[in-house]
Design a protein around this nucleic acid. Structure first.
Lengths: 197, 197
DNA sequence: GCTCCTGGAATGAACGATCGTTCTAATCGC
DNA sequence: GCGATTAGAACGATCGTTCATTCCAGGAGC
């Protein structure tokens, strides 16, 4: 094999760093994690960190960008492969639940990155790319008559607010059972809040 | 007047400091606010700060305690003066909306204090005193038959998740109109998600 | 095939700035 | 006159960042 992309995940210093800081930021927080910590834990020298990311905030920005893009891709896929707003939104919630269970650190970072003290210029999660995609699906559902006519912000918040709050509860350790256990009940409540009839 | 409490708000150094740090933490964040900043802005010397609060985290803890107690008091009052779970929860949402408009900094701090990097030992907002009170009202509503039988966490999250998400949108500057404008629609959606019939 | 050259990548000791905290002396209220 | 409170200069620790240096892969010239 030609191995055109010689940068395997294990050897690519960028990916090595991003994997490391996701864990460090989640367990200690951004400000309690020093650049020296990142260097030691990832095995990448301080000089390399600055070569690749510019500054400390650049590491956080790169991490957010990567995770945000991944989530956008998943949501876009759902939008293309499900027809009704009901099915699209349902699958989004299911994906969010699955991600929370399989990659809780990722979910935690995505939900709170903007509101933590770093990433000052980034816009809040609710106006970021992934959420914009979801909002568009809700809008389409309102046009098609699946969803009652109302303010678009109210509809989107009502539909996803409950599921997000359950995710937060799970991340905070309040819920012992995996989110799969709650999915049907949560989605039933969420859809009732905006369904046309 | 005897003026038994000689510590008027304007002269009480503790209250002076808490008012100051609420503004500073909200606009710059906890870690970007130095103790020297707090001293300069509040007019209280560094020595006094440490005399009254012990350390920097103590200031944040005191602020959280004060605001949390105030919110608990309001929710308790509602619990005592409204009979049905519907009216109780509705008034809680209205109070949250009102607070968001009249004291956005307070609301912002309450919603995100636990998830910011400081206050490490505090439990997350959803298991704090104010939210426990609200959860109890939901539980009572389920017993009385106002709310469909379901997992208590699911019901509470579904009922307050939408309103909280709208509050976050407003705090982030996404919504231009005051929350009063959205209240009826938001509450209608929220209640539909859990109402018995 | 061998050497030299080149530029991107990696290194980590060192730097200045700033942070939270301490401490001693001064001041206030009674 | 005495404990509680205030004052703010000073301290050690630690932070993010810099930079002179080394490493290394691969193309050019012969």
């Amino acid at each position: 094999m030609k191995s055109a992309n010689t940068a395997r995940r294990a050897d690519d210093p960028r990916q090595l760093v991003l994997d490391t800081v996701l864990a460090l930021f989640s367990e200690r927080g951004y400000f309690a994690t020093s650049v020296q910590d990142i260097s030691r834990e990832s095995g990448v020298s301080v000089g390399s960190l600055y070569h690749h990311f510019g500054d400390k905030a650049g590491i956080a920005r790169a991490l957010y960008q990567t995770l945000s893009d991944r989530m956008s891709a998943r949501i876009s896929w759902i939008g293309a492969h499900r027809k009704t707003a009901h099915d699209q939104c349902r699958d989004i919630v299911r994906t969010l639940f699955d991600m929370t269970e399989s990659e809780p650190l990722v979910m935690d970072f995505m939900l709170y990155a903007k509101h933590r003290d770093f990433l000052p210029e980034e816009k809040p999660i609710c106006s970021s790319k992934p959420f914009e995609l979801a909002r568009a699906m809700v809008a389409a559902g309102m046009v098609s008559g699946e969803i009652r006519p109302m303010d678009l912000n109210v509809a989107t918040s009502s539909l996803f607010g409950g599921p997000i709050r359950i995710i937060v509860s799970r991340l905070d350790g309040i819920l012992q059972a995996p989110l799969t256990h709650y999915f049907d009940e949560v989605w039933d409540c969420a859809w009732r809040s905006v369904a046309a009839r």
